[in-house]
């Protein structure tokens, strides 16, 4: 931000701003230590890692383990249902990409229109609360509703004389359930980001629009949404980077790893976990995450370039 106030300066190190640059040091150190330094680990994906006990990691990795090229990726291709797994991963991520923007924006707009402070605070808190629950807890709470014998939903169904449903053996319902749960858990958190962006919008725009006779929808579509565009683009770009990564907790813990639900819950992360749970093979798991990260990185760069082309200001 400070750069904008001194438009004549070029980006980079300047005598007047070096204290501010210094502020970035802790973050830079953190990124170096935990993100750039361990990057040599991609080597795992191309080696047949065999550790000899008592020898250092570097010697084990670089000297003791042979190069195997792309062999470590073959277990991903071996599975004949890789297309289904990829479909699930992309399907859920695209749905979450869209709903993860539309619903929180919608909620944020609604909430800023609420003027009662207590009420708005309470709604915010209720929406935010699920974000802090762990997936394991969410999974068991859901089990409380969906259990065949003791579950609340089947109790209600029985009252109306309907047959009890074996929820954990009925995959047809689970795409909806998983998407619902996923949105329920994350929407409060993303909503806060948009609410901050909305409060930063200049109020006088709304006032003058109201004076000119603009209704609620006119104001939303002509002021709020255009002003939010930068924030939405940023979030979109950030999320597209993890398009092949799925929330393991949502797809493994919430359905309690039920076998029948596998056709709708198997995403790439779940598959990798299941495949490697018994094997403890570092090379295979780094091959899988290398694939995820590189696809994510590629998409991120592409979408950044596209958006940059479309509007230089947003990106």
């Amino acid at each position: 931000m400070f750069k904008r106030k001194k438009p004549k300066q070029h980006a980079g190190f300047r005598k007047e701003t070096w204290q501010l640059t210094l502020l970035a040091v802790p973050a830079a150190v953190w990124y170096c230590l935990f993100c750039y330094l361990p990057m040599f680990g991609v080597v795992f994906a191309f080696k047949n890692f065999k550790a000899r006990p008592g020898e250092g990691l570097f010697k084990n990795l670089f000297v003791n383990s042979p190069w195997v090229g792309l062999d470590n990726f073959s277990f991903l291709i071996r599975s004949s249902d890789m297309p289904d797994i990829m479909f699930n991963t992309l399907f859920y991520n695209v749905v979450f990409l869209i709903t993860g923007i539309v619903i929180p924006v919608f909620l944020a707009i609604l909430l800023t229109e609420v003027h009662g402070r207590t009420f708005s605070g309470m709604v915010q808190m209720i929406l935010l609360l699920p974000y802090f629950l762990s997936w394991v807890i969410v999974g068991y709470c859901l089990y409380g509703f969906l259990a065949t014998d003791e579950g609340q939903i089947n109790h209600v169904l029985k009252i109306f004389g309907a047959q009890a449903v074996q929820w954990y053996q009925s995959p047809q319902y689970w795409r909806g359930i998983l998407i619902g749960i996923g949105i329920w858990k994350s929407m409060g958190y993303s909503m806060i980001i948009y609410m901050c962006a909305i409060t930063a919008i200049d109020r006088s725009l709304y006032e003058s629009a109201a004076l000119d006779g603009a209704g609620f929808f006119d104001r939303v579509f002509n002021i709020t949404l255009p002003q939010l565009r930068t924030t939405i683009t940023t979030i979109f770009i950030l999320n597209i980077g993890s398009i092949l990564t799925s929330d393991f907790g949502l797809f493994y813990q919430v359905p309690l790893d039920s076998n029948s639900l596998q056709p709708v819950t198997q995403t790439l992360d779940v598959y990798v976990y299941k495949a490697l749970m018994q094997q403890a093979n570092f090379s295979y798991s780094s091959a899988a995450s290398f694939l995820q990260s590189s696809v994510g990185c590629l998409l991120l760069i592409i979408s950044y370039l596209i958006i940059n082309r479309m509007n230089r200001d947003d990106a």
């Binding site: 062999d71 277990f75 071996r78 599975s79 495949a275 295979y284």
Partner: peptide, 11 residues
């Protein structure tokens, strides 16, 4: 045959 076994375990 570790890649086959890994895929089989997942199935």
């Amino acid at each position: 045959k570790e890649d086959i076994i890994t895929a089989l375990q997942a199935i």
